[in-house]
Computed example of a mutant assay.
Amino acid sequence: MSDHVRIYEVGPRDGLQNEAMLIPAVAKIALIDLLSDAGFTKIEATSFVSPKWVPQLADAEAVLSGIRRRPGTDYAALTPNMKGYERALAAGADEVAVFASASEGFSRNNINCSIAESLQRFELLLEAAKKDGMRVRGYVSCVIACPYDGPVAPEAVRDVAMALLDMGCYEISLGDTIGAGTPETVSAMLEAVLPSLPAKRLAGHFHDTRDNALENVTAALDLGLRVFDSAVGGLGGCPYAPGAKGNLATGPLVELLERSGFSTGIDCDALKKAEAYLQTITRASA
Rank of each mutant, 00 (worst) to 15 (best):
L89C: 08
L31G: 12
A213S: 07
R108A: 05
S263C: 08
R137M: 14
E191T: 05
E19G: 14
A62K: 14
L223Y: 08
R226P: 15
A58S: 13
A91R: 12
V49F: 01
S114D: 09
I115Q: 03
C146E: 12
T280S: 15
F48N: 04
G150T: 08
P151K: 07
R283L: 15
V143I: 15
A116M: 12
S263H: 09
T177Y: 01
L194I: 15
V140R: 10
T73Y: 05
A163G: 10
L225S: 04
A188N: 11
L190A: 01
G243C: 10
L78R: 00
N216P: 00
D211N: 12
Q279D: 11
D159A: 09
T185F: 04
E275L: 03
K272G: 14
T46S: 07
N112T: 05
G84N: 07
V254P: 00
I7T: 09
G168E: 13
I7G: 00
E95F: 15
Q17C: 03
G66D: 13
F40T: 01
D149Q: 06
P198S: 10
L214T: 06
T73V: 13
N109R: 14
S114L: 12
R87V: 08
A97H: 05
S36M: 04
L190G: 02
A145G: 12
M82E: 08
L174S: 06
L165P: 01
A276T: 15
A38R: 06
S65Y: 08
G150H: 10
R259M: 06
C146G: 13
E275N: 03
E9A: 09
L223S: 01
R283S: 15
H207S: 00
I115S: 05
A116N: 14
E258R: 02
A97G: 11
G243Y: 07
G150L: 10
G181K: 00
A76R: 10
T46E: 00
